[in-house]
């Protein structure tokens, strides 16, 4: 855990990601309607809903890949609504795709190194990448090219890479999608570990059950509107 803490840095600083009245329209189609909620550092918020409910669009808006039609995104008291993706990453916001998008022609180690180099010089970045390999149990795959990994391994690499930029918050788009039971268990374990490390996470899923014992708060989103808020104990 000492190792894990060293990756994230000062976890005592209380950070907050605020989503304020975010709406999104594609021509006449309204995908998101006035969505608001907060996410604190070290907290896990689940966002569940059926296909096409607007979960992924919301994550894309928060990460900066899409622009909201109206509303604001505030990260640690700073309005980042118009900030480009790469600057959001520098400010401590990370994103993991539903379908992993590793740098296919690079090795697992290089994939992590690219993220670590955001905050460190190459030598130190290599040590950080090394720590991440150990943390995610990817040591054996370090020298393998990403194009040769299985779906479960790719998912772990995606998670690991999202952590490599030392974010305060990570947005995870359906991290359990297309995984068998064994890999789901493994990814869940890593997410719990990341939570303990003090990373705030916004996780989307189809069903609330999968986020039990992981999410501090779960929101139900349907037709672009947050309809039900439930508190999950434990």
């Amino acid at each position: 855990m000492k190792l894990a803490m060293s990756l994230i840095g000062d976890t005592t600083v209380v950070g907050m990601l605020k989503i304020k009245g975010v709406s999104k329209q594609f021509n006449s189609l309204t995908v998101l309607k006035d969505v608001s909620f907060n996410l604190r550092k070290g907290e896990v918020v689940g966002l569940c809903g059926p296909n096409g409910s607007g979960k992924s669009t919301l994550l894309k808006i928060i990460s900066g890949f899409e622009k909201p039609s109206c509303g604001k995104i505030i990260l640690n008291e700073r309005d980042i609504t118009k900030t480009p993706v790469e600057e959001r990453v520098e400010l401590g916001l990370s994103f993991a795709f539903q379908m992993p998008r590793p740098f296919l022609k690079m090795t697992v180690f290089e994939n992590l190194l690219t993220g670590c180099m955001l905050r460190y010089e190459k030598k130190e970045a290599m040590l950080k990448a090394e720590e991440l390999l150990e943390l995610f149990g990817l040591e054996k795959l370090a020298g393998r090219k990403a194009m040769n990994l299985s779906q479960g391994e790719l998912k772990l690499l995606e998670l690991c890479r999202s952590l490599s930029t030392e974010p305060d918050f990570i947005l995870l788009d359906e991290p359990f999608a297309a995984l068998d039971r064994e890999n789901t268990k493994n990814v869940r374990k890593k997410l719990k570990m990341m939570k303990k490390m003090g990373v705030g996470m916004l996780i989307t899923a189809h069903k609330t059950r999968i986020l039990e014992k992981l999410a501090d708060e779960t929101y139900w989103i349907e037709l672009g509107k947050i309809k039900r808020i439930e508190r999950v104990e434990g």
Binding site: F65, R101, P102, F103, L104, M106, T114, G115, M117, L118
Partner: peptide, 19 residues
Amino acid sequence: LKFTTVRDDERAARLVGVK
């Protein structure tokens, strides 16, 4: 190495802070 992230995947490159 940073440059080649752009070749492999522009979106993913932005997520590791590459401009």
